[in-house]
Design a protein around this nucleic acid. Structure first.
Lengths: 232, 232
DNA sequence: CCAAAGGCAAGTGCATGCACTTTTTGCCTG
DNA sequence: CAGGCAAAAAGTGCATGCACTTGCCTTTGG
């Protein structure tokens, strides 16, 4: 085999799945964009077989859309579907928060609170990039804290599909501080074991993110251009 | 059934996905069972390529487990994971019921109620097979009634993964009538638009099924034998 | 008699080839 | 010059082949 490419672990197929999924989730590949097996194979210096398998798996989880004999495209997300995913996300996070309030261990509660307090500094500094890290970590803690693997998996999967649409939310002025305050409400509720309040706070938090993203998506000319050009 | 390829639509890979998923979901293929590419290919009279792709997709959605270079097996579900799936199911159905109470159209409400009343007859007759059809239909209506495609998809996917474990629940004496009564509480709540009550009723309903199935799973010697033999 | 080594069979992982389908191109016709 | 049509090009879908990995079983040295 020729010079080993990206040294990352797993089979070639796994690498392809990760590579393509990554490009979709980060928005580098835009919804509706054509995914040509040959080009991808050439691009990553593998044969078409692993690319095909990767595309199949990605279409199985909904990241890619496959039209038989007509190739694959990055899944196009309609406004309706996007709304339904955000709404689901709000409900899923609400469940995680409720369960976290009831089930987190002492250690989990402590580190949730500590990280949350640490992130306050990022807000003061207006450090969007760094806050994003804490934000992601915060939500991950919530999902793990629910102590339910299946909910965890569903939530993580849904979150990753929403990633391209959440991306720019922190560019809205004042969003950073508001986000922290919303987190604060969730943390407080969890710390005192108030499941209902934690659930409601988490749901509200996501709803606000959803609205912010919707505004962004609607005002993004690129978005509409691409989904228009994705017509059959 | 012979190895005859199903005449149904789609590519060979799609047919393989459906065929294998079907056998897993119906319990014909047991958790831990080895899925040999060559044998499956021969069994369905195709080459290994579509079988491989199908297994890849099934592993992407969690129905099969793949160990690199060591073949695929039907996903082994631990008691913990099973519990987490049932719990998720309860929450997902609760969401669907809540949303249904708020959002179902008049037509949807009417047909939900009518079908539900029709199924009462199956209970009187003790017709388990027929009731199962109405039962499935009832839950599907709930998922659709939520008017949220993503929640719908998550719920359907979770439900199908639980199918093998729900299968025998109606064999428990009296379960049929109890199930109908639980449905009745849900329907009543939905009809009067009481989202909270509908959600609670749906959650309780699944919880009861969960317990019934847990009892069954625990008492099934086949189950433990297979999961034991599935060790690496 | 046991443990390590080595070889063999089975099976997976990827590349390649070819048939078939869709899309594009270029030419003709009205 | 638009519309239509056929041939070529591009691209997908599946089969096949071969290299490599794994598990097992035999062999061999202690």
């Amino acid at each position: 085999m020729s010079g080993r490419r990206l040294v990352r672990s797993g089979t070639t197929v796994d690498q392809m799945v990760r590579a393509i999924a990554d490009r979709i989730v980060t928005g580098y590949l835009r919804p509706g964009e054509k995914l040509d097996e040959g080009s991808l194979a050439a691009r990553f210096d593998v044969s078409r077989t692993p690319v095909r398998e990767a595309l199949g798996q990605l279409s199985a989880i909904g990241l890619v859309e496959r039209r038989p004999n007509r190739g694959a495209i990055v899944a196009v997300v309609t406004q309706e579907h996007l709304a339904s995913m955000f709404e689901s996300m709000a409900e899923l996070e609400a469940i995680c928060a409720r369960f976290s309030a009831e089930r987190m261990t002492g250690a989990e509660r402590r580190s949730l609170e500590m990280e949350h307090q640490a992130s306050a500094r990022m807000v003061q500094l207006g450090a969007e990039e760094d806050y994003e890290y804490f934000n992601t970590e915060f939500h991950s803690r919530l999902y793990r804290g629910a102590h339910n693997t299946h909910i965890h998996d569903l939530t993580v999967a849904t979150r990753s599909r929403l990633a391209p649409f959440r991306r720019a939310q922190f560019m809205l002025p004042g969003r950073l501080a508001k986000s922290w305050q919303e987190h604060d409400v969730i943390v407080t509720a969890i710390m005192r074991g108030d499941a209902a309040a934690a659930g409601k706070a988490a749901r509200d938090h996501v709803s606000i993110v959803s609205e912010a993203s919707a505004v962004f998506a609607a005002s993004d000319p690129m978005e509409s251009r691409l989904s228009r050009s994705a017509r059959r």
